[in-house]
């Protein structure tokens, strides 16, 4: 049980680690934006008055939430070229992660919508607000406020999940770590280093989300 840590072996690979950090943060941020957009659209579809739209949204959510992300990733990257759609590894990763997050965030948002009582909506409409205005001010805003912590957790989870996409050759942080490991055989050091990196990212994202919550919900309601 005496292992000699030799972190100095990783020094020559700092450019790789740095590029991995940047790519991980980019992948996570872009997928969060697209995933939220998809989630919002699908959640609205889930509570639509038209059965066909409700059904389509439900099929999407169930199909994605009940299959592994790795399989979805492989279908986008290795499967779609058979249909003539060849995407680069980074693009495929963003698409798979966004589609995946879309399904989970849709369910979270739907829970938020359903937490708004029907009486609230009726009150909004009877005050003379249009359907869109009612949705925006009476449903969406309170709904997001109610489920904000769950959504933030899902986003952080997505950031951690980006490590999976190294399996299609994306050189994000985990991919770079595996590469450095294959060259230096310093597995313990390199994985310790990226563990700490992911921890820092998580704390950073949580702080960012808290700041957004404060700016959007707390400060606004005090005005």
């Amino acid at each position: 049980m005496n292992y000699n840590f030799k972190f100095s072996a990783l020094w020559p690979y700092m450019p790789e680690i740095l590029s991995g950090v940047i790519l991980t943060l980019q992948l996570a941020s872009v997928a969060m934006l697209f995933g939220l957009a998809i989630g919002l659209a699908v959640a609205i579809g889930r509570v639509s008055s038209r059965p066909a739209i409700r059904m389509a949204a439900r099929v999407y959510v169930e199909a994605i939430r009940n299959t592994p992300l790795l399989v979805q990733l492989f279908i986008v990257f290795f499967g779609l070229p058979s249909l003539g759609l060849r995407l680069g590894a980074n693009t495929a990763a963003v698409i798979a992660l966004s589609i995946n997050l879309g399904a989970y965030s849709a369910e979270i948002l739907r829970a938020g919508f359903e937490s708004v009582r029907v009486g609230q909506v009726e009150a909004g409409r009877s005050l003379g607000l249009t359907a869109a205005q009612t949705f925006r001010h009476v449903v969406l805003f309170p709904a997001i406020k109610a489920i904000y912590p769950a959504l933030a957790s899902q986003f952080v989870l997505l950031m951690l999940t980006t490590s999976v996409v190294s399996s299609i050759g994306v050189t994000e942080l985990f991919g770079q770590a595996a590469f450095i490991d294959s060259r230096t055989y310093r597995s313990f050091e390199v994985y310790t280093l990226i563990t700490l990196s992911y921890l820092v990212f998580t704390l950073g994202f949580r702080a960012l989300f808290s700041a957004i919550y404060w700016a959007v919900f707390v400060r606004r309601s005090h005005r």
């Binding site: 990257f77 290795f78 499967g79 070229p81 058979s82 190294s166 399996s167 299609i168 050759g169 991919g175 595996a178 590469f179 294959s182």
Partner: peptide
């Protein structure tokens, strides 16, 4: 770079 020969082969065949 892929995790193993099979995945690298899949990258070529696809």
């Amino acid at each position: 770079r892929y995790d193993d020969d099979a995945t690298a082969a899949a990258a070529f065949t696809s």
